[in-house]
């Protein structure tokens, strides 16, 4: 089967890519666009490491054939700190020690961004539900949930200095 040209708006810029049939959004981002911040954890929709925003909604890039989202807006983690200024979610993850190996972090942040765009003042339960498809194997979820809530509250927790 022949490939086709698919146009999507990627991090604010319209991009046309020649893709083979069945190419996933994850492969398009990583292999064609070198946007490797979106991680491949399982390639079967079970770990959440590849979460991106498609038309503002958190989606798993490994499960989306690119042809099915032609014309959509896609946002990845690379779009969050464009002027070298961290997004409040990123800042909160740094200050709240919500990263360890870092592999799940991109997906966690994008899932959280999807949540905050429709629910800027989420409850703890809302946050837990929003990241329920994202697996973290190092840090545990408490610091991640805390960081998302801190970002939502409009402030990262300041670094504590001991007396």
């Amino acid at each position: 089967m022949k490939g086709s040209v698919v146009s999507i708006t990627l991090n604010g810029v319209e991009r046309e890519t020649l893709v083979a049939p069945g190419t996933t959004l994850l492969n398009l981002l990583r292999e064609h666009q070198s946007l490797t911040g979106t991680r491949r954890g399982c390639d079967q929709g079970s770990c959440g490491s590849c979460t991106v925003l498609v038309d503002g909604k958190a989606k798993l890039a490994c499960l989306i054939p690119v042809e099915t989202i032609a014309g959509s807006r896609v946002e990845t983690v690379e779009n969050l700190a464009l002027n070298n200024e961290l997004h409040p979610l990123q800042q909160a993850f740094v200050e709240g020690f919500a990263t360890q190996c870092g592999f799940c972090t991109s997906g966690m942040i994008m899932a959280a961004k999807g949540l905050l765009s429709v629910n800027p003042r989420p409850s703890r339960a809302d946050v837990i539900r929003a990241i329920s498809g994202n697996v973290c194997r190092c840090t545990g979820y408490e610091s991640i949930v805390d960081a998302i809530l801190a970002a939502a509250a409009g402030m990262g927790k300041p670094l504590k200095k001991s007396a």
Partner: peptide, 16 residues
């Protein structure tokens, strides 16, 4: 006894 930013945290949160 103090909190210090992880050396790799900024790379992790930006996907770099």
């Amino acid at each position: 006894g103090t909190s210090t930013e992880r050396a790799d945290a900024r790379g992790h949160v930006t996907g770099r």
